[in-house]
Simulated scan of single mutants.
Amino acid sequence: MRNTGLDAQGYIEREGSLGRVPRAFRPVVAAARERLLDVFGPRMTSAYLYGSIPRGTARVGRSDLDLLLALREEPTEADRADARTLDDALDKEFPEIDGVGTLLVSRAQVLSDLETYDLGWFVACLCTPLLGEDLAEDLPRYRPDSLLARETNGDLGLHLARWRERIAEAGDSKEAQRPLVRFMSRRLVRTGFTLVMPRWNGWTSDLAEMAEAFGAYYPERAAQMRQAAVLGYEPGGDPDVLHAYVENLGPWLAEEYARVHGVKAPRDRRV
């Protein structure tokens, strides 16, 4: 029997916890907690971990440290500069991690009506409290339904033009192409999964499991999605893969997503 990621009432369970952080990553988590307090202090209402480290699936030397900070006010350029400095320092000090990414948002944004089924869901279900108040207490419970699907990933079509620009900017550089392959692979697999999530009736963050769930409903695209899941974990620099994403898989997925779930409420955001 598969683990659906749902509780007995059919709501998505929060997937991570500090108790699941692997022993090798505990020193970097402790350092992040201490430095976030030093750097952001009263500017910050909440700090969270997300990704493979709090899920307990991180790989030493391969996984990155993902942080989300909810600030009292809208993030400023000075806040972003402080976050980049903190990220760089942690990445250099701890060889156990392969990069640090700190996402800055405001408390008001997390709790806004517009973000209830996107950023709010992300905080409530995919983020593990590290510091401060847990904003999940002011958010609803979530089911794997069409509304959640639409508001999390129903904007893929809006981003494909920017993806093409980023591919052009990377040129022939394998070093520049590799993070694009990783990012786009993960986004496409997650979008493919949430396309079928209401029928699959569950939640998972495992890319391979996401691809298999998708493939059960779209067998003609299953091989493409399985390849994307592999590249999401082990990306290479491959322009053919990138061009296939923005000229084939991406446009098809965006069109099918809009047909099935509709289009996400507009945001002033570029990805």
Rank of each mutant, 00 (worst) to 15 (best):
Pro95His: 15
Gly5Ser: 13
Thr191Glu: 01
Leu114Asp: 14
Arg269Met: 04
Ser52Leu: 04
Glu77Ala: 14
Asp113Gln: 15
Ala223Val: 01
Ala223His: 01
Asn248Pro: 09
Ala30Lys: 12
Arg80Pro: 10
Arg187Tyr: 13
Val60Thr: 07
Ala258Phe: 09
Pro27Tyr: 11
Val230Trp: 01
Arg14Cys: 02
Phe122Ser: 04
Arg72Gly: 07
Leu131Gly: 08
Asn3Cys: 13
Met225Phe: 03
Asp138Trp: 03
Ala70Leu: 03
Arg59Glu: 10
Arg178Lys: 11
Leu156Met: 01
Thr45His: 12
Asp7Met: 02
Ser17Phe: 07
Pro95Trp: 12
Leu130Pro: 07
Ala149Cys: 03
Leu242Gln: 07
Tyr218His: 04
Pro140Val: 04
Leu69Arg: 03
Asp206Pro: 04
Leu188Ser: 06
Ala213Thr: 02
Leu253Ile: 10
Glu115Asp: 13
Asn153Glu: 03
Glu73Ala: 15
Asp64Ile: 03
Ala70Arg: 00
Asn201Val: 02
Asn201Glu: 08
Pro144Cys: 00
Asp87His: 05
Arg2Asn: 05
Glu13Tyr: 05
Glu151Trp: 00
Gly56Arg: 06
Arg33Leu: 12
Ala47Met: 12
Arg221Leu: 05
Gly157Leu: 02
Pro22Tyr: 08
Tyr217His: 07
Val105Tyr: 09
Gly215Tyr: 00
Ala58His: 09
Pro22Trp: 09
Leu242Ile: 08
Thr76Val: 06
Ala213Ile: 01
Asp38Trp: 10
Ala32Tyr: 08
Thr45Ala: 14
Arg267Lys: 11
Leu37Pro: 09
Gly101Cys: 14
Leu119Val: 15
Gly215Glu: 03
Asn3Asp: 14
Ala47Tyr: 09
Asp38Tyr: 09
Glu93Arg: 15
Ala213Arg: 00
Pro95Glu: 13
His261Phe: 10
